[in-house]
């Protein structure tokens, strides 16, 4: 993944309608993201890249490392030969966290502390 230029095409007129009768099949029945946090992590990564904070290839290196780590230590369900579901966006998240730590933009301890604070929110405020 080299240095992308503009993330968004500037020719919206060239895009086909995304809904309605003229819309071609697009996602082929598959959701792009399985959970809201997956799309958030994806969007956050792109937004940070768009701000010029890192080269996409730097993120990709971290992603490859995170995936390789998971595959080397592939967990299996207890007593079963069936591998647990591949946590692609967990790997993505780990890659982003590692990259931001390297760049000095977010220390792992800061992130752990904030996640713990959020986890301890009074019930009913955890949305």
């Amino acid at each position: 993944m080299t240095e992308p230029g503009d993330l968004l095409p500037v020719h919206p007129g060239d895009l086909l309608p995304v809904s309605g009768p003229a819309a071609p099949p697009r996602a082929n029945g598959e959701l792009v993201f399985a959970a809201p946090w997956e799309s958030r992590t994806f969007g956050l990564t792109l937004a940070l890249h768009e701000r010029g904070l890192f080269a996409w290839s730097s993120f990709q290196e971290k992603l490859i490392e995170a995936i390789a780590r998971w595959e080397a230590d592939r967990p299996r369900a207890a007593g079963s030969e069936t591998p647990v579901e591949y946590p692609y966006y967990r790997c993505w998240q780990q890659a982003l966290e590692a990259l931001l730590a390297d760049l000095g933009l977010c220390a792992p301890t800061d992130l752990d502390d904030r996640a713990r604070t959020l986890a301890e929110r009074a019930h009913g405020h955890d949305h």
Partner: peptide
């Protein structure tokens, strides 16, 4: 659980927003 990915995502976005990064 603070290791929950949704919580970590929320925490990361909050920190980076507060820091004016995103």
């Amino acid at each position: 659980d603070p290791s929950d990915p949704a919580l970590r995502t929320e925490a990361l976005e909050a920190l980076l927003t507060e820091r004016g990064v995103v």
